[in-house]
């Protein structure tokens, strides 16, 4: 039962990523890759959440997986990696937090009662901070492979040489 539920979630995550991919007008040959990447990243995030890890770290894990997959996908389908990574990571973008924060700010302006104001302020700051840190985690995760490999372009990243590059000096790898 648990597995069927997971598989169902997997499909919906994939469709969410693909919907955004179509909205951003990605080349058709990359669509199915984005479906799979979005589904895998989202599933990892949900699994982490279920294990009791907080939302920021979970999002980071999901985004990191997508980041590494996007490098592989870039080699496979000959497009820059972020074409895959951004639509795939969009279902994890804290849209709900962001607009709850905005809604909170708007409501704060019209709130006169002191206790209600403090409560609303607490919620707003909570939502805003979560949105910011989840977003940071997502971009860090997506650009993780690029940051680690210190390369100018993904085309130069070869998985076999990745580790040597990671630990070798910059001059030696050029």
């Amino acid at each position: 039962m648990e597995w069927i539920h997971l598989f169902e979630t997997w499909i919906w995550l994939g469709f969410a990523a693909t919907g955004f991919a179509v909205l951003f007008n990605v080349p058709p040959r990359t669509l199915w890759v984005i479906f799979i990447m979005g589904a895998l990243g989202g599933t990892l995030k949900l699994i982490c959440l279920k294990l009791g890890i907080n939302i920021i770290l979970s999002s980071f894990m999901g985004a990191l997986l997508i980041g590494f997959l996007s490098v592989a996908a870039a080699h496979l389908r000959h497009s820059p990696p972020f074409i895959f990574a951004i639509p795939a990571v969009i279902p994890m973008v804290p849209g709900a937090f962001t607009y709850r924060m905005m809604l909170g700010i708007i409501r704060l302006t019209g709130e006169n009662d002191h206790t209600l104001f403090l409560q609303l302020l607490q919620e707003t700051v909570d939502n805003g901070l979560k949105a910011f840190f989840v977003l940071t985690a997502l971009s860090l995760g997506v650009s993780g492979p690029m940051l680690l490999s210190r390369n100018k372009s993904t085309k130069e990243i070869r998985p076999s040489k990745f580790l040597t590059k990671l630990f070798g000096s910059k001059k030696a790898s050029d």
């Binding site: 951004i86 709900a96 962001t98 607009y99 977003l135 997502l138 997506v142």
Partner: peptide, 15 residues
């Protein structure tokens, strides 16, 4: 309204 979320500006901003 989630289809409107500014994903690209926000992610690009952090990048």
């Amino acid at each position: 309204v989630l289809y409107l979320i500014p994903g690209i500006p926000l992610i690009n901003s952090l990048l």
